[in-house]
Amino acid sequence: MSTVATEAELTAERRSPAPRLPAPRKRPRQRNWLTIWALMLPAIIALIALIAVPVYKMVVLSFEKPNIFTHKYKNVGWANYKSVLGDHEFWTVVFKSVIFDVAAAAATVICGVAVATAMMHMNKALKLAVSTGLLLVWATPQFIGATVWQWFFDTEFGVANWLALHLGFTKEFQHSWYTSQWTAFFVVFLVVVWQSVPFVALAIYGALLTVPEELNEAAEMDGAGPVTLFRRVTLPLIVPVLIISTLLSVIWDFRVLTQIAFTTQGAPYGQTNLLGPYIYQKAISSGAYGVASAIGVVVTVMLMGLSYFYVKIMRREDQ
């Protein structure tokens, strides 16, 4: 699955400048290679055994109609791919997943940066409270957190409806948040963002802490306003972490599963089933293991597009 990347990468490597960190003089290059191998080998072995092999299996399965109970595997060529790519539902799901992904990842990163920046200026007690709160959210089992949110927006017992009623927004108590695709997605969106912000916020906060105070002070003395200060001094220093958090948010939010399973369960009419639940249904509930594997491959290839940007960024970083 990585042929494209391989070629792109090889060219990138060829064009890379000479070794960035030359071994200290007087040491033979030989030693370096030994060290590199010794350091990399465990990871390479683990990645091959634990990831490459299962992925290979997935690719093989994607060309088969397997019966995993009788252990009979029938090769079906590209049939699974044809059925996936020709399935209108699949493209709808992908389209929705992309939109949701962009919205959720953007919201997560913006909130994360805002929270992290605010934390830098808070008073101490509050800062401690906020970081504790974030850690607690992060440490709460996903499905429990999702369940609580589902309760808030419950048709009959929900706090949201209760509030709306008592604040006079509505006369009718039983507003159903899950009969409209938009409000249903809104609930999933809230859960996802709520659960993802802590990681981004804490990562960026960590990065912000590494910005030497003198830099800020120096800039301030030069008369830089807060916006300029952030753009000119802070931002460049947290860019690597920002890129990483954004990329990870985009990748993770593309296939939320638990948060949907424990809130809307696809309601209304399966319209909030994004890629995660979609694959789960194919792979596990309906026993279409071959098709599910094909979806896995297709999705991976699609997401590989993202890695193109990453490679570009990395190369810039390397130079």
Partner: peptide, 12 residues
């Protein structure tokens, strides 16, 4: 509210 606790496929 969909049966909240049930998972995705939940189903039957």
């Amino acid at each position: 509210m969909k049966t909240r606790h049930v998972s995705v496929v939940a189903v039957a």
